[in-house]
Design a protein around this nucleic acid. Structure first.
Length: 117
RNA sequence: CUAGGCAAGGUAUCUGACCGCCCCGGCGCACAUCGCUUUUGCGAGGUGCACUAGGGAGGAAAGUCCGGGCAGCAUAGGGAGCGACAGUUGCUAACAGCAACCGGGAGCAAUCCUAGGGAAAGUGCCACAGAAACGAAACUACCGUGGUGCUUCGCACCGACGGAAAAGGUGAAACGAGUGAGGCAAAAGCUCACAGUCCCGGUAGGUGACUAUCGGGAGAGGUAAACCCUGUCGGCUGCAAGGAGGCAAUGAGCCACCACCGGUGGACUGGUUCCCGCCAGAUUGUCGAUUAUCCGCUUAAGCUUACUGGCAACAGUUAGCGUAGAUAGAUGGUCAGACUAGACAGAACCCGGCUUAUUCGUUGCCUAGUGCA
RNA sequence: GGAGAGGUGCAGGAGUGGUUGAACUGGGCUGUCUCGAAAACAGCUGUGCCGCUUUCGCGGUACCGAGGGUUCGAAUCCCUCCCUCUCCG
């Protein structure tokens, strides 16, 4: 899990990303992102629809795994981006963790969110 | 030993390392605000960060199928309507739940299942088939009368009239009391005996459903998870309930009357089925707030132990414990190891049940059969 | 989280206790017409199991989201479960 200051808050802030953001599609998920100059920290959200899996336990597990990857990549996210990750396949709950890490790293690099110092 | 049945309890992966999340307490630092003070400064509550003690999903958290608490609408009132339930007695805050018992059914038995009031209050329905489907009815076959034919007795034919529900076939069901005897032209509860059903009354037992038994009477199809009748219960909406500022101004809105401070009556609107009753009633400016935040929000019909009462469900007393509270939503991630296995599955105001999903394993009791002693 | 509506053939959609495997419309297939196509017209068109049959096909039976119950009889009435959709700040 990530800290409260990096989480989204409310309904309109997500609509802002959906309208203004750009998209990077992957095999199991897609990332919508935009730069938000009014904030000091980045924010991230994971969206898992009930159509991905019916069990709340599996949906929670998908959400926690993705938050964990973001937490590990946190030192590289310097600028205040708003990031929304939409999951559309249930396999993301069962693939090995290093594969998931590589997958999300590739998507976030493509979006130029990560900075290598 | 084999087969079967019942009851009760446990468990819900664990251990270590590293990195993280939420709540609450302590302490320190920083920031802005307010108050006191001439100032330095002191105090208050707030926010953020660092360190640290402690706590952090379930037996079903699920389905939302019932019942309550709580909140708003009158301290939730009366009638109609609508809905739910249905053996008895008890338990409970309450229930459609639970316990014990009664009746019916299944099983050799242990035991299990049971929406189990009323069809002699009324209405409806009973397709197809069949002569006829519910205040009965005569198709075939039967009996009598009548007519015709033939050689008398008698037989055959006709089917006009009458008798008759015993036989046939159809159907889920055929008038709804079986067997035997008498009876008759032929028959039939038409009559009798025995057995059985229902109703009324009595006696004995039981709190009661009911059981046993005695007397008198009756002949009544099924369906109420069809309308309905009887009895009992239920007001409606649901935490997305509901609540949380300051100042000022106009005016107490419409109609009638008393009358001119004000009061009475009526109309209208709202309180989400209707009627009665009850209650309430308008508008504007400005500061603050800007779709949010805070409260409700977790101590509760609470859990455990012992004793007492009760067949039991459960109740009472004593002692101990203090038990998640998130808000785009906290319990996680990676690695290593252990055991035989690790499933179903994530709190969202809170409880009591029911139903459904599901891992591993324990204990006790009972029944039937077979073998041995 | 709370409240409600629905599920019938390939699709839409009637049927609300009795000859309904199922009306009607669309889709699909075959034929007529045409040089060819469209339109029009005519006919056919669910699935599983069992039996008969050389084949074409014929007959029986089950299925209206799933399971159970009431009833002589259930797509329809009742109960439990599954799925889909809508509304409430």
């Amino acid at each position: 899990m990530i800290k409260k200051q990096h989480r989204f808050h409310g309904y309109n802030s997500l609509n802002f990303v959906y309208r203004q953001g750009q998209t990077v599609r992957g095999p199991l998920s897609s990332i919508k992102y935009t730069k938000n100059p009014r904030r000091q920290h980045y924010r991230a959200a994971v969206v898992v629809s009930k159509k991905v899996h019916k069990s709340a336990v599996v949906r929670n597990r998908i959400r926690r795994r993705i938050y964990e990857v973001i937490r590990q990549l946190e030192p590289k996210i310097v600028e205040p981006y708003d990031i929304v990750i939409t999951v559309f396949h249930e396999n993301i709950a069962t693939i090995p963790s290093d594969e998931l890490h590589k997958l999300l790293y590739a998507q976030l690099s493509q979006a130029n969110i990560l900075q290598n110092k």
